[in-house]
Computed example of a mutant assay.
Amino acid sequence: MNGGRLSMAARAYIVGLSAVAVAVGIALVRTSGSGALVGTFIVLTGLGMLTHAFPVQGLRHQAYQVTLPFIITGAALFSATQLITFVVLIHLAEQARLRRRLHIQWFNLCNYFVSAAMAAGFFHRAIALLPEGAPGQVAAAMAAGCTFVALNRAFLAGALWLARGLSPAASGLLLPRLLAADLIIAWIAGPMLVLTLQAGPWMVLVTAGPLLLARTALSVLVPRRRHPARQARARAA
């Protein structure tokens, strides 16, 4: 979604996703449970806001966050109201720091909410089918993580195609190394969820430690636009 005027197709796509987000939100509110304890909500939301506000920036249309474990854990534990609040707050934190164009940030918010809500649905369905206890919870969290990554990338690929004319292959969204990195980061949600349920919200801080290394790894994996001066030096070498 470039800085110029959006095409009618891109506008329709954003409006359509917005309508889906509203419908999903209404359905989620009607079927939602009591949600997480206040302490759990505060810790997950605070860390989610912090990590989402500092993405690893790639090419113009690419930004990668390590927020995934907090999103998946929140999708598993939060009520509908908590999940909506969480998604809104992490994007407000990002907007306060990066000042993205409003239509881009609105699309991102709707994308994340719909993907997180569907991940929550997959998690609760998996929990009902899998054995009780930690193994089932970890497997369900992994299923939710895969669901979120797949939907989030699919929605973003559609937006980039309609708004910028970038095919999924040209956008870089399907690069195997980046998909693998996202899935590995999402898998942290498994132990984060289990330990939080067993020992309380402060275990989120312990299990979030590997995300510091994940951010460093993403900085290496994400393709970036080269600075003109560096390009000139490279050509001269």
Rank of each mutant, 00 (worst) to 15 (best):
L151V: 11
Q62S: 10
S18T: 14
L47Q: 05
A119F: 01
Q65N: 14
Q57M: 10
R60L: 03
V56K: 01
I42A: 15
A189L: 06
A140V: 01
A96Y: 02
H91V: 02
C110M: 07
V56C: 01
A143M: 11
L68T: 11
G145I: 02
L218H: 03
Q82K: 08
A234G: 04
A120V: 00
Y64G: 02
A154G: 05
L156N: 07
V114K: 08
L156T: 15
L109D: 04
T45S: 10
G200M: 09
L174Y: 15
L44N: 01
R226D: 15
P135N: 13
S219M: 13
G33D: 06
A126P: 03
L59S: 11
R226S: 11
A232G: 12
A75H: 02
R97P: 03
Y13M: 08
A21L: 08
N108V: 10
A150E: 05
L37D: 15
T196R: 10
V194C: 09
L50R: 06
L129E: 13
V194P: 10
V29I: 14
A236P: 03
W187P: 00
A96D: 00
I14V: 15
I84C: 04
G48H: 04
R99P: 01
P223N: 09
V222E: 08
I104N: 12
M8Q: 12
F148L: 15
R60E: 13
T45A: 11
A128M: 07
F107H: 15
V138H: 00
S18Q: 11
V43D: 05
N108L: 09
A180F: 12
A189F: 08
A36P: 01
A208Q: 08
A234H: 12
V15M: 09
D182E: 15
A141T: 02
P135R: 01
M118V: 12
G46I: 00
N152E: 15
G25F: 03
R230N: 12
A170H: 10
G133V: 03
R225C: 06
Y112K: 13
P201G: 11
T31D: 13
A214Q: 12
R11D: 06
G48R: 01
L162Y: 07
L102E: 09
L83H: 03
T196H: 06
L218M: 06
V15T: 12
V222N: 14
W161S: 10
L178C: 09
P176W: 14
V66D: 04
V88E: 03
F70I: 01
L47F: 14
I90T: 07
L212I: 13
R5W: 11
I71P: 00
R233A: 15
C110D: 14
P176H: 05
A27K: 07
F70Y: 11
F123H: 15
T40L: 00
R125W: 12
M8Y: 13
A126V: 06
Q65D: 15
A143N: 06
F107T: 06
P223R: 11
R99S: 07
G39N: 07
